[in-house]
């Protein structure tokens, strides 16, 4: 297996007041993948990104980007990183093109208008290139932040809540941008509150809670392992309670008694649906329709975090 492009070992970030934001993080990120970092508010997502990018100093542990230590070889490590922060932090009176040029220069890259023009075009900012940032909408400002982060051609791009406060259309647009970057070989680490976003675009998902990584797994495998499937049975007549004969099943009533929800494990040998339908018939309950649905990553995430909190 190729060496990871980002390698974090036993990372601790503790503050003077005693609060430990990151508590022994170990994480490896492979070149070219999209990793979604999920976690509740205050879990340590932004602190982790800030520490990798050099905005915060690690208390202990090691972070290597492209093989370079982010403290000792900070120049080489940071040259590989692009960061899109959570807040829309932009100098309001700068023009779009100027602020992107500024970012490229900060990373020590010589001026390359052809490349920057292409970045602006890719992000649908070309028409706004001479506009002052103060005149742009929130979505456009988000794009400018991405353009700035891409201005020095980074290998690793950190997107901290890239679609926060962005409408659905723009969010999907942003996903396309992320997919295009991945196609070019850029490694992307994104934090998000929109779990459907992680489910839709991430190759792997890392869940962080209370400063610790709870799991890192491929999105599809995680869904298979922890995802629960449900069969929704529409009834011809509503039920007031689940009949005694069906108490052995994982059933619940929904839709004012007009629906029976049956939960089953996709990894089990048998789903039990056929047997349930037979028992329904035997109990004199008439079925109108049957559909199945997969539990979302959101439910998986809530389950994980709650299990941790309960422990």
């Amino acid at each position: 297996m190729a060496a990871p492009i980002v390698s974090i070992s036993n990372l601790v970030k503790a503050y003077a007041g005693g609060f430990t934001a990151l508590d022994g993080i170990d994480l490896s990120i492979q070149r070219g993948e999209i990793l979604a970092l999920l976690g509740p508010n205050g879990a340590g997502k932004t602190t982790l990104i800030s520490t990798i990018c050099g905005i915060a100093t690690p208390s202990s542990g090691a972070i290597r980007v492209g093989g370079y230590d982010v403290v000792e070889d900070f120049r080489d490590a940071r040259r590989m990183i692009g960061l899109v922060p959570q807040e829309l932090t932009l100098e309001p009176f700068e023009k779009v093109r100027d602020t992107v040029r500024f970012s490229r220069g900060l990373f020590g890259k010589p001026r390359d208008d052809a490349y920057l023009d292409q970045v602006l075009k890719d992000l649908s900012l070309w028409d706004k290139r001479d506009n002052k940032i103060v005149t742009l909408s929130g979505g456009m400002k988000r794009r400018v932040l991405i353009a700035k982060a891409l201005s020095h051609e980074p290998d690793v791009l950190f997107l901290d809540e890239p679609t926060a406060g962005v409408d659905v259309e723009l969010r999907r647009d942003m996903w396309r941008v992320v997919e295009a970057l991945k196609a070019k070989g850029t490694t992307i680490i994104l934090t998000t509150h929109y779990i459907e976003e992680a489910e839709a675009i991430a190759d792997r998902i890392a869940v962080i809670n209370k400063g610790q990584i709870m799991l890192v797994e491929e999105t599809a495998a995680l869904m298979d392992r922890m995802g629960r499937k449900e069969a929704v049975i529409d009834l011809a007549a509503p039920l007031s309670a689940i009949p005694e004969a069906l108490h052995n099943y994982d059933l619940s009533l929904a839709g004012d008694g007009c629906q029976l929800i049956y939960g089953y494990d996709t990894s089990a040998e048998r789903t039990g649906i056929r047997r349930l339908l037979n028992d329904l018939e035997a109990a004199g309950i008439t079925m109108r329709d049957l559909s199945t649905r997969q539990s979302s990553l959101e439910e998986v995430f809530v389950k994980l975090v709650h299990a941790e909190d309960a422990a």
Partner: peptide
């Protein structure tokens, strides 16, 4: 000013001593 508006992140995360 960059501290106030938050753009200082860019300076701090750049390969600048």
């Amino acid at each position: 000013f960059p501290k106030f508006i938050g753009t200082i992140y860019e300076i701090l995360s750049a390969p600048v001593s």
